[in-house]
């Protein structure tokens, strides 16, 4: 099975690495920020969540990760319900968290940032050599405090960190935000590369041009609801209309 996935064939039969969210609602205090969200990410699939600020995209990612606890509905991963399991269990089950602030530790060096999380799947984990080969700048700066890197480098570090864990699904929260076009392009390349390895990506993105260059499918979120779910071709042909509808 894992051979299948390693060859990058999505929908590998019998694969255990499907993320399924069903009837998910989430609250902040009294305010309901997600209503009855259903979504699915197949192995090796890149799926985006598109929507304006406050649509509930980040809350959705946090709920999948187990960081937002005030929820109803189910999140299942690899066929088993994650229930109330803690974020660290979910991470060890293969979910790779890349938060919107990149989450780089200032008190840890670049190398420590990379090696802090446990390796969760030996078969899937990138070795440190592999990481440094892909991201030479992280090698050059391995002894610097993590936050001494530029924004783009920090984003690379945050992604490399979960790849080194061997995560099977990356939860990427606006990786392109605030970065120069050339860096955004590089991040696009990385996403395509990890997709080719059979790793899935759930991507929150406001930059729809960027989203359409990497994604297989899109979910449009407005006021905590999924208002549309469509493949990349229809997304590209209807971009203007959809963006207007979303008010972006």
């Amino acid at each position: 099975m894992s051979d299948h996935v390693a060859q990058g064939s999505p929908n590998a039969k019998g694969s255990q690495h499907v993320l399924e969210v069903a009837g998910l609602s989430a609250w902040y205090g009294e305010a309901k920020v997600l209503s009855d969200v259903d979504l699915r990410v197949e192995p090796g699939e890149v799926v985006t969540l598109v929507g304006r600020n406050g649509a509930g995209k980040t809350t959705l990612l946090r709920s999948v990760m187990g960081l937002h606890r005030h929820v109803e509905g189910t999140v299942s991963w690899g066929g088993s319900d994650l229930g109330r399991s803690s974020p660290d269990k979910r991470a060890r089950a293969g979910l790779g968290w890349v938060p919107d602030d990149r989450g780089i530790y200032a008190t840890l060096t670049v190398a420590e940032n990379l090696t802090l999380p446990p390796v969760t799947s030996k078969a899937d984990a990138w070795s440190l050599e592999q990481v440094y080969e892909q991201f030479p700048v992280l090698h050059e700066r391995r002894d610097f405090p993590g936050t001494k890197l530029s924004g783009g480098e920090q984003q690379m570090l945050a992604i490399a960190r979960v790849l080194r864990m061997g995560s099977r699904l990356l939860l990427l929260d606006e990786p392109s935000e605030g970065l120069a076009p050339v860096i955004v392009q590089r991040i696009g390349e990385i996403i395509r590369q990890i997709k080719a390895q059979g790793v899935s990506v759930l991507l929150v993105e406001q930059n729809v041009t960027f989203a359409s260059t990497v994604a297989d499918r899109h979910y449009l979120l407005a006021q905590g609801r999924v208002v549309e779910s469509l493949d990349n071709d229809s997304f590209q042909s209807r971009t203007t209309e959809l963006l207007e509808y979303l008010g972006m």
Partner: peptide, 22 residues
């Protein structure tokens, strides 16, 4: 020590990276 430093800086994030802070 590395885990303690990471948890000291941000315990929630450390959990999300698979560390059993508890």
């Amino acid at each position: 020590g590395m885990i303690v430093r990471a948890a000291t800086e941000d315990a929630e994030r450390s959990r999300a990276l698979g560390i059993n802070v508890g």
